[in-house]
Write a protein that binds this DNA or RNA. Structure first.
Lengths: 194, 194
DNA sequence: TTGAATTTTCAGAAATTACTGAAACTTCGG
DNA sequence: CCGAAGTTTCAGTAATTTCTGAAAATTCAA
């Protein structure tokens, strides 16, 4: 692997992390390499930079394309395919979230829905169903939030993040304002958080 | 595998999903089984239910304990270890988030910090560093939000989720209220979201 | 149409990861 | 201290995943 040392440590780290969740080492390395490269790279360039076979690069790029994590570019008078990642890290985050939801959440929700439709044949099954119902409800709340928030433009999303938990304080303020004139609500004591 | 059909499909699904992110099939299955079981189970019970070897169960339970996803119980006059999952799905979510952050985010941030301290020796390195800086900044914003929000009790967290994107509308309302008397801010037109 | 440049496919080899059975270890009552 | 009940470890094997080289397919200029 012939790479500037700074890029190299990044690429190697991403290879390792890659294998810590679903994606394999090579895919992680290629993604990292594209991410830190100022120009789009062609497959042979990746082969040289990472010291892996041409066919492996081809398959890994195809996988990255399947995740929409990589952009295909063409240069004039050059038949080769060149690849980059999007410039905007927020856009990358959105893609990642969307694809992971599609692969990891949606299928689970489908399975849970199917099971929850069935008639339990015993107490054990009734209990199992109620547990699955809990899980279903939780994931539903999370994905509803996600579906709502993902539509925000980046500035507003950043604002929302910056606000964090303060939102609830804001909410409680609003409650006080709204309830003004209807009698004061008992104010919760501090320290009743978990 | 001798299991009520409802539990069985759940367990098998979790096995498959498990291998879609880092954790292996057996670990996923054991977790799912514990999750839907009304009572704590001992290792031999798991062996029978899933048809896997005793040693595999032992290693997989150890892995789940490493993730804090499983609770060890003891019954009076019984030397065996019994295992369950916590009852509260929100608690499970918190644990999962915490552990994944520890394993997937923190090490990456450490690597990024180290690389960003170095002096770039070329334009390519300068560019690579700026990209890593972008990534660092993004993850920092996300984890700051997470650190803030994870301290909320479950009710408030649920409220915050339910509110979703409406938070920003609330914020803009607050801006108008706060700026009252300081001259009206130009109101953004609808449809300027991405 | 040919053939050079490039990409893709795929069967098998290599590497990694998961699983097992047997043995070692731990704990505890008698 | 012994032995019964239970758990963990680990070396070897099985299963799975990843990677490769060779061949096939595609694309395009001449």
């Amino acid at each position: 692997m012939e790479l500037p040392p700074i890029a190299q440590s990044f690429v190697l780290h991403f290879g390792e992390m890659g294998s810590r969740w679903g994606i394999n080492r090579t895919v992680g390395q290629i993604y990292a390499l594209l991410y830190v490269s100022p120009e789009p790279l062609c497959a042979d360039h990746i082969v040289e930079a990472l010291g892996i076979s041409r066919s492996n690069v081809s398959m890994s790029l195809r996988e990255l394309q399947g995740w929409n994590l990589v952009v295909l570019k063409h240069l004039p008078d050059d038949r080769r395919d060149f690849f980059t990642t999007p410039d905007d890290v927020w856009q990358i985050l959105r893609t990642l979230a969307e694809e992971r939801k599609k692969r990891e959440i949606d299928p689970t929700m489908t399975v849970l829905r199917e099971i929850l439709m069935q008639h339990p044949a015993s107490d054990a099954e009734r209990y199992a169903q109620s547990r699955m119902g809990d899980m279903y409800g939780l994931i539903e709340q999370l994905t509803n939030w996600y579906d709502d928030v993902k539509q925000l433009d980046t500035d507003r999303l950043a604002t929302l993040l910056a606000l964090g938990a303060k939102v609830t304080r804001l909410l409680e303020t609003k409650d006080r304002i709204v309830s003004f004139g209807r009698g004061r609500q008992p104010r919760k004591k501090d320290g009743d958080d978990e």
